[in-house]
Write a protein that binds this DNA or RNA. Structure first.
Lengths: 215, 215
DNA sequence: GAACGAGTCAACACGGTGTCGAGAAACGGG
DNA sequence: CCCGTTTCTCGACACCGTGTTGACTCGTTC
């Protein structure tokens, strides 16, 4: 009896062995392709099925819903993002400015490489709890890591005291997130894509290392 | 021929004279009531109609869609917000800290008074262009006003030079907006509601009046 | 070659949106 | 008082998207 590994893959629906695996891939690829063209809300399950060369009921053999496809796509991006930000572990030797710049740039670049997916993520967040939770997890990881880095800077005397590092980290991350979204979506006023990282960095540095006037 | 005032009210659908006005109000009230209970996506046109004591087709006599109702509600809140922030016109005599605190507090309080509506706004923004544009307008007004105030502070020598005031204002406003949403929705990590204005203020002051380390 | 499981889809049930056309009710002339 | 016009109302419909059911194919395995 070879590996009967209880393969209930993280969020899949099948036991998945035979060739039907290609179909699953085809659905994912179709989703990514269509998202580059139109928003999530304009894509139907039928679009995904047809794009993958199957019928709608067959789609449901592979995924429980449209959102499940998105979640599957998102899992991959998140894994990639985790890897990237772990590489660029916060604050290497090169000094605060360079360290934070690298961190912010990495964050931005990872999501810029998946613009359409990021926008769909934001779109689905309002209506789907699972997607909301995934977002919260990613956000929290990032903010937590920043909070630790801020505390480290304070401990070594490089940054002055101030609000709880955790709160600061959450708000600055919120700013990044919103700026990212505004930049990608192009709706409403946003900082030019070429300048956004520079200005964000400036705000981060001032918030972490600067002091506010007493009054 | 008396006033044939081409009364196409801002976003309404009727010429609106007779008593059927109550119905319109009833729909708006129902919407606000239901939004306090469940998200926009969980409210159907039928719910609104029944809540107002009319049938679904009759609903369409008053509003073109569910989103039109939201837009109507939003127009009122926006008018209120405009009035409030005009009152608290940025930076009175009491010094920078007090001035910016008042501005941020006013912004927060206005929307806190309409939590459910604010969340619905965010929810509809992804799928409805009109609502997106309204949001962009409000955001832009606010950011513009902040940018002017920042430039004034720089001109009088109170604030050091830095990134374009406009960019700074846009990013700081993005932070406020996202923090506001996170606080209201309660999803994911957020700064405690009691502390959020204080920490936001600290970031604003440091971003505007502080300087970043050279490296 | 029977039994099994994976894969497939036509047809259905359902729930939401928006429209159409036939009326009822309100109101001012003539 | 009846008559036309305007406001208002809704039953019935057409449409679209979702998710399910049940039957059918096909390759594998014993």
């Amino acid at each position: 009896m070879p590996e009967t590994v209880s393969e209930t893959s993280p969020r899949g629906r099948r036991a998945a062995r035979p060739s039907g695996d290609d179909r699953e891939l085809a659905i994912l690829a179709t989703a990514e392709r269509l998202l580059a063209e139109k928003p999530l809300s304009a894509i139907s399950v039928d679009d995904l099925a047809r794009g993958a060369g199957i019928s709608r009921p067959t789609f449901y053999f592979y995924f429980a819903s449209k959102d499940a496809v998105l979640l599957s796509l998102l899992d991959r991006v998140v894994a990639e993002a985790d890897a990237a930000t772990l590489d660029a572990s916060l604050l290497p030797a090169a000094g605060p400015r360079a360290g934070w710049r690298l961190a912010i740039t990495t964050y931005f670049e990872t999501f810029r490489a998946h613009r359409a997916l990021t926008l769909a993520w934001a779109e689905a967040r309002s209506t789907n709890a699972e997607i909301r939770e995934l977002w919260a997890r990613v956000f929290d990881d990032w903010a937590q890591r920043c909070a630790v880095a801020i505390d480290a800077e304070r401990a070594r005397g490089a940054a002055p005291p101030g609000p709880p590092a955790r709160d600061l980290a959450v708000l600055l991350t919120s700013m990044n997130e919103r700026a990212l979204y505004a930049t990608f979506s192009g709706d409403g006023p946003a900082v030019a894509e070429s300048a956004v990282v520079d200005v964000l960095l400036e705000v981060w540095l001032r918030a972490i290392y600067g002091t506010a006037p007493a009054d």
